[in-house]
Structure formats: structure tokens, C-alpha cells
């Protein structure tokens, strides 16, 4: 290669790289470039998959006209991503994140995390996955009442698995212990599927798990009750809620998933998101894919989801304060 040729190649490459650089940011209408969507869990997990499904039509002219690009930042049960998002994400509307409701607030309360209601602003909710109480198919327990009676006879000796600390399953367990005045032994697993497997394999006696995951394994389980305000009509219409059975467990443990921005993002940007996100979640393709994926949708707009966060913050503070000292 002669020197001159090399210089030409270098010049060509530099020119190529320059054209790939983003142009000067002009005051164009939002959004003028792709939006980053931070997911706090690994690719292939339930949160990641649902985020990919609901954000897929973003590039459509009807919604944002720009794609949403998923950035996975897993670690420490969501703490790594949310902590980064609350403190270091740009407040421009180009940095959006997926929240998992009881996790994000419960961690902020219980672990003194540096994120929470003051630093995060929810915009729209797309999914809800309630916690269900399940026992193995071979168990002699048939109903919630049986379960509570069994736990009262064996205080502290009933093991119950869930997907980690300060996630929906853990919250549901704390609520059940308080409401039924029983004492259970919680065994945290690194995810919902391993927690469910531990029940199927007979390692633990019961599990609080995702409705969607339990539904998929329903042949090997007995699902006793749903920790939500209403029954799940689509997947488990015959399983009662705890409330129906007179046990005071509300929807604090339901795993709500939706989009949020860091607080301080300008209103003209959040208005656009608040208007178009629910519309995008109602997209026919999104609804179909979510249904095929066995995930239930619960779409809420900005006002509704912000009320939800406020209500849950209060409920979780009360619950976790009881638990502490």
C-alpha cells in the first residue's frame, strides 16, 4: 500500500465517520431521534420481553415516528439501573425507563435507595402481573383457609419461595403474614422461575409467584388465591382473590410495569409521552403479541398511574415500617 493511497483511505473513512455523527441539536419537535428505553433486568426476562413488545411500534408515524431502543442494565434486583436512571439520566425525554412498581418503591423505602417518588415520574402503565399463592399438586392443602390453618399449626415452619427481597412476592407474603396473623419463612430465589421450580421440585412448601408463570405451570400446581382487587378473568377465572376470602390483601404486591422519566423532564416532552404512550400500548399488534405471550395488559394514563404510585407509596411505607423495628 503506498502512502498516498493510505491517506486517501483515511480521508474517506474520516468523512464517513463525520456523516454518521449526530447533527447539531436543533429545536425540532420531540422526538427528533431514537428514544433510549432502560430496562433494569436481563434480556429475555419477562420485563424485558414485555418492554420489547410494547415499544415495538414506536417508530410508527402514528406514535413517535422514532424507534425506542432497549438498553438492559441488570444488577442488584433493579437497583443498578434505577439508581443510575434517577441520578444520571438526561432529563430530555430521550431517556425513558421501565419501572416495576412494588420493587422500585419498596426498595427505595426499605433499602434507602437513592431513587423513589421524588426523583422518578411515572408516565403510563402497560402491564400488571399479580402475585398468586400456589402449593404443589401433591399437597394436602386445597384452599387458602387450609393454608392458613396449616401455618398456624406450624408457626415459622412453612417455607415459601419468591423472586427475591422487596419484590411483589415478598410484599404479598408480608401482607399475608399481617392479615392472617401467621409466621412464614420466606426463601428468596434469584427469579420467579427458579422460585416456582423450587416449589415444583418439592424444596419449599408454597410459593408466591407471578400469575403468568404459575398459569403456565398450572398442571403441576394448585393455585390458591390471587393477591389483587379482582379475579383474573382472562387466565384464572376460577381462582378467588384473598379479599373474597376475607383476607385483607390489596393490590400493593401486583407487579405493575410501565414507563417513567426522571423528575425534572420538561412538561412539553412529558405531555407528548403521556398522550402517545397509552395509544401505543393499545396498538393492535401490541395487544395481540402480549396475549400470545401470556401477559396481561392493564393500560393506565398519567393521572391514573401517578395516583397509583402515591397510594402504593403510602401502603408500602406502612407495611415496611411495621416489619422493621
Amino acid at each position: 500500500m503506498s502512502g498516498d493511497n493510505a491517506t486517501t483511505i483515511v480521508a474517506a473513512i474520516i468523512a464517513l465517520v463525520m456523516t454518521a455523527l449526530p447533527g447539531p441539536a436543533s429545536a425540532q419537535e420531540y422526538p427528533s431521534r431514537p428514544i433510549m428505553l432502560t430496562v433494569a433486568y436481563s434480556p429475555g426476562g419477562a420485563t424485558d420481553l414485555q418492554a420489547r413488545i410494547v415499544s415495538q411500534p414506536a417508530a410508527d408515524r402514528d406514535y413517535f415516528g422514532r424507534p425506542m431502543i432497549i438498553v438492559n442494565k441488570p444488577g442488584a434486583g433493579g437497583k443498578v439501573a434505577w439508581s443510575w436512571f434517577a441520578s444520571r439520566a438526561q432529563k430530555t425525554g430521550y431517556e425513558v425507563a421501565v419501572y416495576n412498581l412494588p420493587h422500585v418503591l419498596a426498595q427505595s423505602i426499605a433499602l434507602n435507595a437513592d431513587y423513589g417518588l421524588d426523583t422518578l415520574e411515572p408516565i403510563a402503565n402497560f402491564g400488571a402481573d399479580p402475585a398468586v399463592l400456589a402449593v404443589s399438586r401433591d399437597s394436602s392443602i386445597e384452599t387458602v383457609e387450609d393454608f392458613i390453618a396449616h401455618a398456624k399449626q406450624n408457626p415459622g415452619a412453612v417455607t415459601i419461595s419468591g423472586a427475591g427481597l422487596y419484590v411483589g412476592h415478598h410484599i404479598a407474603l408480608l401482607q399475608l403474614e399481617r392479615a392472617a396473623e401467621i409466621d412464614l419463612t420466606y426463601v428468596p430465589y434469584p427469579g420467579a422461575v427458579p422460585a416456582l421450580t423450587s416449589l415444583i421440585g418439592g424444596q419449599v412448601q408454597a410459593s408466591f409467584n407471578n400469575l403468568s408463570d404459575a398459569y403456565r405451570s398450572r398442571d403441576r400446581l394448585k393455585i390458591l388465591a390471587v393477591a389483587d382487587l379482582d379475579r383474573d378473568a382472562a387466565f384464572l377465572p376460577n381462582v378467588p382473590t384473598f379479599l373474597e376470602r376475607g383476607i385483607d390483601i390489596d393490590d400493593s404486591s401486583v407487579n405493575f410495569r410501565g414507563f417513567m422519566v426522571p423528575r425534572g423532564t420538561p412538561a412539553e416532552v412529558t405531555d407528548v409521552l403521556a398522550e402517545r404512550l397509552p395509544a401505543m400500548f393499545h396498538d393492535e399488534g401490541v395487544l395481540r403479541r402480549m396475549r400470545e405471550g401470556g401477559a396481561s395488559m392493564r393500560i393506565m394514563g398519567r393521572e391514573e398511574v401517578q395516583t397509583l404510585w402515591q397510594r402504593h407509596q403510602a401502603a408500602l411505607e406502612a407495611l415496611l415500617a411495621d416489619l422493621g423495628e
Partner: peptide, 15 residues
Amino acid sequence: RTASKRIAISAVFTV
């Protein structure tokens, strides 16, 4: 000659 070769290879690698 060696300088332009090194720059070219670095650029190709980066691309």
C-alpha cells in the same frame, strides 16, 4: 509510510 499505515489500520479497525 509506516505512520499512514498505522492510521489506516486503526481507522479500519474502528469502523
